[in-house]
Structures are given as C-alpha cells and as structure tokens.
Design a binder for these strands. Sequence first.
DNA 1: TTGAAAGCGCTAACAT
DNA 2: ATGTTAGCGCTTTCAA
Lengths: 341, 341
Amino acid sequence: MSGASIKDVAALARVSMSTVSNVLNNPQRVSAESRDRVQRAIEQLGFVRNAAARQLRVGSSKLLGLALINISNPFFTDVATGVEEAAREAGYSVLLGNSASRPDGESGFLELFEKQQVDGVLIVPSGDVLDKLDGLRRRGTPAVLIDRVDDRRAFSSVSTDDLAGGRLAAKHLLSLGRRNLWFIGGLLSVRQMNDRLEGFRGMIANYPGVSLRVETGAFVDATSGLEYGRAIASLPVDQRPDAIFAANDMLALGVIQGLTATGFRVPQDVAVIGYDDIVFSAAAAIPLTSVRQPSRRMGSTAAQLLIDEIADPHNFRPRSIVYEPQLIIRASTGDPKGTTP
Amino acid sequence: MSGASIKDVAALARVSMSTVSNVLNNPQRVSAESRDRVQRAIEQLGFVRNAAARQLRVGSSKLLGLALINISNPFFTDVATGVEEAAREAGYSVLLGNSASRPDGESGFLELFEKQQVDGVLIVPSGDVLDKLDGLRRRGTPAVLIDRVDDRRAFSSVSTDDLAGGRLAAKHLLSLGRRNLWFIGGLLSVRQMNDRLEGFRGMIANYPGVSLRVETGAFVDATSGLEYGRAIASLPVDQRPDAIFAANDMLALGVIQGLTATGFRVPQDVAVIGYDDIVFSAAAAIPLTSVRQPSRRMGSTAAQLLIDEIADPHNFRPRSIVYEPQLIIRASTGDPKGTTP
DNA sequence: TTGAAAGCGCTAACAT
DNA sequence: ATGTTAGCGCTTTCAA
C-alpha cells in the first residue's frame, strides 16, 4: 500500500541505508556494483524519495512559492510561465498560489509557503503584505516582489514603471483630443493601481480644461468592467467620458463589452485603453490599445533574483529592476486598421 | 535567522513540547492557562509549524497535486479555479503543476507530487500516464482524471462527452451547408483529441459527398493555429476547406487570425468552430462558435471525488462523471449578430 | 492536565 | 567503499 523507504531499498539491495542515500546524492562515491543493485531495487520497489524527510534533514526544499492575485488573468499566467522557466533551470520547482481562491488572500499563502518550507517567495502583492514578508525573512525565507517596488528598498523587486505607464496612457488619449477622461481601477491601496492613476493624473495636469473622474472598486475583472461599461449609458450625457483608462486589460475588455452592449461605439464615442497587453487583447472584437508590460520576462528575472539571494544570502543587496512600459496602439483608441501585433 | 521550533515555544512558555503540540492539535485538552502562555509564545517567536516534520510523522500533507497541460489556456485555469474551491472547503491546499514548463512533462510532476507526499493527484492527462498513475496508487496515492475517462475504469474521472462534442460540431457545420471540412488538433494519441475527431468523423459519415481532412501536430496553441490559418492561403483553391473544427479555442482563435490576415473572410469563406468555450471566445474579433465544457464545475467535481476517495480509500469505487457538451453558436460560423453570451 | 520518549524517512559525520 | 548512528521537528502513545 504505502510507499517504500530507503530502508526497504537497502534491504533488497543488501546494502546499508547510507549507501542507498549515497547512490541518490553522491553516486560517484559508490562502487558500480552496489550502484547497480541499488538502482534495480529502486525500480523494483517503485521507490520515490520522501521529500518531507529530506527537507527536515537538509533544511531546504528546492521549492519556490509564487503567490498570484488571480490565475484567470493571462498577465499572471505569463508571469508564472517566466518564473517556472527560470526556476526549472536552477533546479527548483514552484508552488503556485492563487490568492483569489483564499478568503485570507495572499497572507494565507505566505503561511502555507512557510509551512511547506519553501526556499523563497515570489509575490505579486495586492494587499499590505510587507510586514508579513519581513517576518518571513527574519525566519530565513527571502522574498522578491513582482509588479511593484518596495519603497523601503528592503526587498528586491521586478516591476514596470507604472507612473510612466499612466502617463503614456494619458498622453495618448489627450493627443487624440479626448477631454473627459475616466480612470477605472481596483483599490488604490494597491500600489500598482495608485501609480497608474498618479501617472495618468500627473500628465493630465499639464492640460487645462481636461476633466478626470476616478472609479475604483474591489474587483478588477471582466465582469466588473462590464458593469462599469453598462452603467455609463444611464448617466446624463454631460457626465459621460469620451475616453477610459482601465487599470488592466481584463477590466478594459469588460468595459468595451458593456459599452457596445449599450449602444456606444468604441472608439468613436468612447476610446478605451487597457494595461498589461495580454495576448487576447490583440484579437479582441475591438482590438485593445494597451500599455504593455514584459510579463514573462518579469517573471523569469524575479525568479533569478530570488535564486541568487537564496544561493548567497550574506552578500545580498536588494535590487529593483524596473522595465519601461510600452504603448501598443490598436483600434480601441482609433487606430483604423487595428493591426498592430 | 531560521524559524523557531516547538521546542523553543515550549521553553518560552515553560511547558513541554507535547503541550505545545496539543495546543496546536487538541486545544480542548489543555488548560486555559497553558494555552494562553503557549499562544503568546507562538506569537512572540513568530512560530510557524514545519509541515515537513508534521507530514513525516502523520503521513498526510493535506495537499492535492493538480497537473495541467498548459496554464496559459483559460480552460485549464478555470478547471484549476474549480479544483481550488472544492479543495479549500475540505481543508486542502493545491500544488499546481504546469506540464508545459517541464521537459519531462506531466510525469515529471507526478514524481514531484509523490515526493511532496500529496494526498491525491488530479490530472488532465495528455500523454500516456496511466501506468504511472497505477504505480502511484499502489504506493498509496489516489488519482482522478479530468477531461477524459479511463477506459479500464480503474480511476475516477470527470469529463465531457467528447464524441458528442465532435458530433455537435459536425452537425452544425453540415447544417450550414459546408462540405469541405478540416479537423485541426494536437496528437491523436491524446484521448480527448481522438474522441473529438471520431465524433466529428462519425457524424460526417452520414453525409455523402463531404470531405474531411485531418491536420494534427504537436502543439495546440494560438501560435500553431495562426500558422495553420496562414498556410491555407498557399493551397490550391480546390483543396481549401470551407469549415474548420479546431480541437480547442486557443487554436481556433489563432486559426481565425491566420485566415483573416491572409484575406479570408470568416465565416463567409471559412467557418471556424472551437472547443471549450473559454471566456475570451465571446469577445473575440470574430466571436467564436464553440463546444462548451463546464470547466470550473469539472474541476470542483473532480476534487470532490478525489477528496472522498482519500477520506475512505477502502470503500472506493471508481466513478466516471461525464458532462454533456453544449454548442454555443456565434459569428465565426455565421450567426449574424454573434451576440450569444 | 501534563510530560517523557519513541519514531516517521532521510542525510551526514564518523568509524571501519 | 561501506556501515553505524544521531538527529532534523513533529505527533502520539503511555505514564504520572
């Protein structure tokens, strides 16, 4: 029924437990003959090393924890793909946590990660987890932030310049002649959100006669976007926007659906711009203009930073890597062909 | 530096290790006073239980392993969301594995799962893993298949009737008057693929004068779809399809992009139908007709089956739950409005 | 109600 | 080259 242990393998191969262990960890120290016998015994018994026991003894699990806000958003799965690539190359596996699935969100996962003795944590923070991460680090588990920086520069981070991203979006909409702008996003306590808004606002400040309305809520998914889009129809005409900056593409795609469902034309009546440039934005009904983040690269870079820190915790200096966002113009803000890749 | 152990907590609270353990596992057996002291010590030290040690002793990890083919496909993340919901309710956490990220694919993950001592495995199988799963079960780890059945009925499974799905697709295209049909999919050794094709083929057999061409390859993602779509332009006119059934929506979305990029009109020149009905299909440039699978429910049902089996392995009887697929008609096969939700 | 001690499976220091 | 043994942190009898 239950799995075979090193003891069983040793008995079958007529060697000691440490020889089996050496076959597993230092094959060169073992004679070819014993090695063969052990290998055969392992196969015969279907022996699989018990990681719990190994971890307990060695202290390291060769596991990285990755806490994501929402696994349904392709931006995050791209990040995850990047993380997995870099992790695999360095011999690590990744424990993927989807905060949305837990009532206690990301901090629930941090605790799971710590219990599971991961060697390090990667996190796309939404709530206020920095204190928790401090605790983790004090107890020996390093962490790297993805998608936002740590103002105190205590943790390494890999992010995109969200202030610049917000400015890019504003500049583009303003250059199109739009003057009644809306920002739609999630909680402004989430740093990324706030920065995108601040960049947006800052650029607008240079233009007199432009109005900005800020709509924020708890959710930033397609469904909530749809509701925002629909709600606009019931507003007095003079309160309607002629352009919307949505804090991520899922939200933007939903907003467009809501707008078109209630008879608005995008971009003629309302231009819409998103953030992240997820893969589906290019192929959307109305191809979406978006501020692109190099999601996959962010993931692999962050994993690399973390792995370096794990390998040499003493010489560790926090590093903040900030990528430049890139504006991808498509039909949702007026590119007539909408064919930009 | 490194984390505190039960021993440290015991020392600080001036009780024995077993009392600390009891506070953690059987609080009612401990006097209120000791409980308080222990709780304070735990907080003061930032103590977090070492899961490795606990697992080693108890044998159970309260972890479920979920092996997915490709985390970038929303169908799979929907399944994962369902799994996580059901798992969480039952007190389990899930270890999410993305086969695409490993050279050894899913079997690499099965080994990781076994090493990590998961209590059970959920898998959307692509390769031939049934032998591996047999081994796992023999060693005490049950498994449930998602998205396909086990012909030998040795494992429980949750799937959609892919034969029926294939027939649904064929019937729809034929009713539209299409006569030169293509099937585009991945490896036919993958059971789901093969069934979708067989259902498709079976329905076509009832119609004389209809041609079927089958194109299969290693990948079933948007990129490979794009290439298939493009390639059609370079074919002699009499060899071109007037309808394409793609084995999943990612592929279908890619095919449409490839077709439109080379000047074909969808659905006028070529109708395209996908499979899964991922969330982005409704909002695509040309809204995609698709065969819907209840992805999230499949995930939660599968997790439930697995958890039941873990709870009572002796009374276990394999169960196969098969959902009926549903045809969702949109513009890519001619619905003029393309507004079906 | 509490404590002492054995042992889960593995590795690593030490001995042979 | 191989074997013996202690111990990682926890839970769980069993005794007190």
